[in-house]
Amino acid sequence: MIDPLVKAGADINAYDDRGFTPVILAAYNGQAATVDALIAKGANACRPDRDQGNTAQMGVAFKGEDAIAARLLKAGCDVNARNTAGQTALMMASLFNRTHQVDMLLAAGADRTIQDAAGRSADSVAADQGNALMATRVKR
């Protein structure tokens, strides 16, 4: 449906009534082929949601979609993008113990020292979850 919608003039970066873009929805729901198709048609893989400022990269950290996380990193988005609470994808990946994504984000240049609005960094977010191994991994 992407091709016909684009040909008909649909805005591939439009927000739905909940404030999500097509890329965010596809990524969050594990639809890797749809994410690829949207990006190939010019969708902005970096556009945050309208209300909270969460990116698709943050959403896949929550959901554990490693392959999509890798694809989104290739799209060239700011690896240190922050939502309205000052949180980053690295913080979310640390929070949900997404070891592979943490490694990918760090390799892509994620800043482990960024603090959110509450003064927490990726390592303290992991520690607050009782995950000392992740806290150590992120703090290195």
Rank of each mutant, 00 (worst) to 15 (best):
M1I: 09
M1Y: 09
D3N: 11
P4G: 14
L5K: 05
L5S: 05
L5N: 04
V6R: 02
K7H: 10
G9W: 06
G9Q: 06
A10Y: 02
I12H: 03
N13R: 00
N13L: 03
D17H: 09
F20P: 00
P22V: 00
L25D: 01
A27Q: 05
A27D: 02
Y28V: 08
Y28D: 07
N29T: 12
A32H: 07
A32K: 14
A32M: 00
A33L: 03
D36F: 07
D36P: 00
G42T: 10
N44H: 01
C46S: 05
R47C: 01
R47Q: 12
R47T: 15
P48Y: 05
G53T: 08
G53P: 02
N54V: 13
M58A: 08
G59M: 11
G59H: 10
V60N: 00
V60E: 01
F62P: 05
F62S: 10
F62N: 11
F62A: 13
E65K: 11
D66Q: 13
D66W: 02
D66N: 15
A70E: 15
R71L: 10
R71P: 05
L72R: 02
L72V: 09
A75T: 06
C77T: 10
C77G: 11
D78M: 08
N80S: 14
A81S: 07
R82V: 13
R82K: 13
N83W: 01
T84L: 06
T84I: 12
T84H: 14
T88F: 03
T88A: 05
M92V: 12
M92W: 14
F96M: 08
Q101N: 08
D103Y: 00
M104L: 14
L105I: 04
A107H: 04
A108S: 09
A108H: 12
G109V: 09
T113I: 04
I114D: 10
I114A: 01
D116V: 14
A117N: 13
R120Q: 15
S121A: 15
A122D: 04
A122G: 12
D123Y: 13
S124I: 05
S124A: 00
A126S: 09
Q129P: 08
G130D: 08
N131Y: 15
N131K: 08
A132G: 07
L133N: 13
R140H: 14
R140C: 04
R140T: 12
